[in-house]
């Protein structure tokens, strides 16, 4: 299952690669990383129909996670439409409501509880 992680902090990549090293090694999950909303959209266009899930930060310079979410849900992307999980340090109800209204599939607050995240990922039926 291909997962695209979008965050402006480069170290997120190291963290995910280590947190999910068993799953990566076993080939259960494959991670790709983008450091901005724009980069994520480019990646999605260049790798059509690959990404099953997008894990995106909200607070990023330039295109925010919410804008990325809107693009993913509204732009004509090749099917199937990826699921989107929002990750944010600002876990207020307003942002949450906004994300949900834009069609987010889930909403997690930072710091990320990786055990819980892992469970959620395992619950997604692999295609």
């Amino acid at each position: 299952m291909k997962i695209l992680v979008v965050d402006d902090e480069p170290d997120v990549r190291l963290l995910f690669e280590q947190r999910f090293r068993r799953e990566i090694r076993s080939g259960e999950f494959a991670f790709s990383f983008a450091y901005s909303g724009e980069e994520a959209l480019t990646f999605l266009r260049e790798h059509p129909s690959e990404v099953v899930l997008i894990l995106s930060d909200i607070n990023m310079p330039g295109m925010s996670g919410l804008e990325l979410l809107r693009h993913v849900k509204q732009d004509p992307l090749p099917p199937p439409p990826p699921l989107v999980m929002m990750l944010t340090a600002y876990g207020d109800t307003e942002t949450h409501a906004q994300a949900m209204q834009l069609g987010a599939n889930d909403f997690l607050t930072k710091p990320v509880d990786f055990a819980a995240l892992k469970e959620k990922l395992h619950a997604i039926p692999s295609l």
């Binding site: 902090e9 170290d11 190291l14 963290l15 280590q18 947190r19 607070n59 340090a89 600002y90 930072k110 710091p111 990320v112 990786f114």
Partner: peptide, 20 residues
């Protein structure tokens, strides 16, 4: 916000290191 981010990394890398 700026402190929260590095602290998250500190905690996460520490956790992951325990696993390693």
């Amino acid at each position: 916000h700026e402190i929260q981010n590095p602290l998250n990394f500190v905690n996460n890398f520490a956790d992951v290191s325990v696993e390693l």
